[in-house]
Design a protein around this nucleic acid. Structure first.
Lengths: 330, 330
DNA sequence: GGGCAGGATTGGATCGTTCAAGTTGCTGGA
DNA sequence: TCCAGCAACTTGAACGATCCAATCCTGCCC
């Protein structure tokens, strides 16, 4: 069992004071090169690592960022957050930060957890996923000037804080354009009920693409909650309309999967394009709009470390383009 | 901006000393009930929360456990770890612990990360997933007497340390028995190459079930790496044998998915049962053996907190039974 | 009423680090 | 010669909790 190596151990070994060792670590330029060298050698020889708890007590900074892990809902969309989380952990490590997880049943309890994490662990910042109109969580954090970045736009006030998002409209527009190029005109859209920022955005992309192609989107749109069964129901409903669509763009892979099931049951085949490029889409050969989750996570960490360490602490925004992944089903 | 509430603030407010407040928190029984009451009220009124960094400096304990987050490999099996992680975070929170994530490219670098986490953050313990024969990580931790629990058995030395695992053999046995009960005799198995603990275990369950039903398993077994394409190839190979199977049990949902694709291409249908009950299986109606991941995570936390706080610090083991989830494809 | 036992409470030291305020030694200008 | 000015390094104090040892009550018994 190796004994604890503290800054004092290093100082003794290099025959300098504790503070000089601290300076070598935190402000190397004020230490004479030969002394710096000697201290650095001692650090390596002894395998010294700064104790974060002690550092944190003095500085109030922990080099820890918190991310909420959500319950895996329908299991399909959960994988999106999973991939995001992995990217986040990797990039954070590269920047010298570590990721701490928390769960919360609802917004109120999530806010309570913020207080807990901040006072107990002196968390440096938060990455918030899945924001919505008038989110109380971001308001709480902003009020207390606690650094945070959201993955997802604040739809009400686009420049309220730092965020990273994926241009959903661009994704559905590209998907729709691809179907137009393949000769389709009556391209249906299955999306979520109006009112959610993400859902409205994805619908808007399809809408604009159709208008751009000179097609009237009227009567080609179905609104439903997310889910496989819901997607199937919406598809049957669309097929029963006077002029049914000849291709489908969906706001999620769950809906697209439901659409495929409904089509199979109805004995029809139409091209279907989903959204999120989940493992399920890959597994069954469903074309889908893929979000650059690794990139998004990396940019989140960038923006957050900017807020924490950077010279310019103004909020910044990043909008990433998704990519249409074509598979044999469209 | 609320100012910092320390143990001294609480002490002043309740007109007692810091030590008494500390006692109320850590050893309530030695404080007179009315004093305890007064202090507890002060804690609530002021919203006091103990600063972990300060506590940790004195006690050397951080109430933090570390879990590795793996790169999402084929995306299907990744979800297993995701669900496990969620359960872990929830249960840990309930026991007053928080989960910290780390990544590592290989075993050596993972071990290097252990040292980092331990000296920088004074981590209390580790939950290790995906152990294999002669794992260097568990050896490293055991040597230094660092508390850890694995999700997955140490196949070489069953009682070397605390672990939680799911009885894979019981799962494949039940799947096979179900197919036998449905009238099948020549039930094939698609599994991984011999040598991996998990893979051998799952194969053994199928093997025993067939023997129990009086069927010779010879020639009904295919070995392949994990993956959809690999599952499809193995299936085609099995179908080409002199006496092809009339039903299939697979060691993973990826393999099962490949099997389904191969069967569809071949214009055949056979009942197929997968393993892990991933979202993909649920989405396409594939029957699968479901691991109780939430339970497993909770037991991992239980065993770990036992090692950390408990009176009995001997390693303990937990083997959970999986459950066969039947869907329309079998 | 004094002494005593026992538990409740107090003050001081401590964990490892960084910040703030020194101390030392050297250079150079008057 | 003297001292201002600076660079390089050292020392003492502080962060907020817990541990330890000493002190203070309180009730009880003789």
């Amino acid at each position: 069992m190796a004994e604890k190596v503290t800054i004092a151990t290093v100082a003794r070994h290099a025959r300098v004071s504790r503070q000089t060792v601290s300076n070598v670590i935190n402000a190397p330029h004020i230490v004479r090169p030969e002394t710096r060298q000697r201290v650095q050698e001692a650090i390596v020889t002894l395998g010294y690592r700064a104790n974060q708890a002690a550092r944190q007590m003095r500085t109030g900074r922990s080099r820890l960022i918190a991310v909420r892990i959500e319950p895996t809902r329908d299991g399909i969309n959960g994988s999106v957050l999973d991939r995001f989380l992995h990217g986040l952990t990797e990039t954070a490590e590269a920047s010298g930060y570590r990721v701490m997880l928390y769960t919360a049943a609802d917004d109120d309890r999530e806010i309570a957890t913020y207080g807990d994490l901040l006072s107990a662990y002196d968390l440096d910042g938060f990455v918030i996923t899945g924001t919505d109109h008038g989110d109380p969580r971001t308001a709480w954090l902003a009020e207390r000037e606690i650094p945070f970045v959201t993955f997802g736009r604040p739809w009400d006030h686009p420049e309220a804080h730092s965020w990273v998002d994926v241009d959903g409209a661009a994704g559905t527009r590209e998907a729709t354009a691809h179907l137009v190029a393949a000769g389709h005109l009556r391209i249906g859209f299955i999306g979520w009920p109006a009112g959610s920022g993400v859902g409205d955005d994805r619908r808007a992309g399809w809408h604009r693409a159709l208008l751009g192609a000179g097609v009237d989107p009227d009567g080609l749109d179905a609104e439903t909650e997310d889910g496989i069964a819901e997607g199937a129901r919406a598809t049957r409903e669309l097929l029963a309309r006077p002029t049914p669509p000849t291709a489908l763009v969906c706001a999620s892979d769950s809906l697209a999967l439901g659409a495929l099931q409904a089509l199979r049951t109805a004995g029809t085949t139409l091209p279907v394009i989903g959204f999120d490029d989940t493992p399920v889409a890959a597994a069954i050969g469903l074309s889908s709009v893929s979000q650059p989750l690794g990139d998004a996570a990396a940019r989140c960490v960038d923006l957050l470390t900017d807020l924490l360490d950077g010279p310019h602490r103004d909020p910044r925004q990043v909008l990433l383009r998704p990519e249409l992944v074509l598979r044999h089903l469209a």
